[in-house]
Design a binder for these strands. Sequence first.
DNA 1: CAACGTATGTCAGACTTCTGACATGAGTCA
DNA 2: TGACTCATGTCAGAAGTCTGACATACGTTG
Lengths: 152, 152
Amino acid sequence: MSQSGTGIDLDTSLGYLLKEASSVLRTAMEEVLRPLGMTVTHYSCLELLAQRPGLSNSELARGAFVTRQSMNVLLQNLERDGYVTRPAQAPVGKALPARLTPRGRRSLERASAAVRSVEVRMLAGMTEAEQADALRSLRSMIRSLRGDAVGA
Amino acid sequence: MSQSGTGIDLDTSLGYLLKEASSVLRTAMEEVLRPLGMTVTHYSCLELLAQRPGLSNSELARGAFVTRQSMNVLLQNLERDGYVTRPAQAPVGKALPARLTPRGRRSLERASAAVRSVEVRMLAGMTEAEQADALRSLRSMIRSLRGDAVGA
DNA sequence: CAACGTATGTCAGACTTCTGACATGAGTCA
DNA sequence: TGACTCATGTCAGAAGTCTGACATACGTTG
């Protein structure tokens, strides 16, 4: 696809393809989330809270792959609009455990269904085995990039 | 990794893992690009121009997975700083073919080497066959998400 | 106990990217 | 030829995210 002007190796670079896949996935998610008035990070935050109630702002940030400052802005809005609640006082340390409100849970349900449909569409045409392979490949790449050491 | 509080299926979601891998890759690239005073999009633009000279602003935007408005901002800066050149008049239509200047090419060389090392690190621990599989998987996901049609 | 390093929440400012909008140039078709 | 559609470049404003900075809370270590 695209132009085949010079026959570049961009199409054979795993890094480039990873970026492309991520971009396409993000766009597809934004498309289904926009009608619900939700961004991807917004949805990620809610989904994380549904699956792991009590996560702190910093933990949510790591789970959604943004800085804690960005997540803090979002979390304050979500709290103001009644989607999540946080105690005024930290039970321990400074971390404030966040939880979904019933309203947040309802909002998430629609979003979750929409996002699931996107993932289903993405996986169409792949066998179970291929999906398992892809899972292992991605995990390997993540581990290699994170696992520091290695001067190289 | 992370907490194993509830045993979530986030670790088995290809979509989530794709986002994670992309995030880690981006962070790794930013790390090596920052000392060179370059962002990922900045580098992407230069790399695209090196491999496909004469790409227009819109084409560069598509290749770097940003909007043409964003690429336009970047391209104007790169032009102002002497990394790329564009004719004042469009040879055909409105599209202005961009090209690297010698300075742009020099700047790219260092960045390209740095990015290559990141990709090498990412692929460490994967066999040729596994890389080929990953390539096919990512292409399949991209095609499925892009290829509309298909109701559910 | 005191000092240190680490992690957290939060505020402020800057940067990047996005959406919306407009005008221009090329191709298509009646 | 004229109308329509599409792609492009560009400007302007809005939104999201980032970096930098500060104060606070915990654990460790002397």
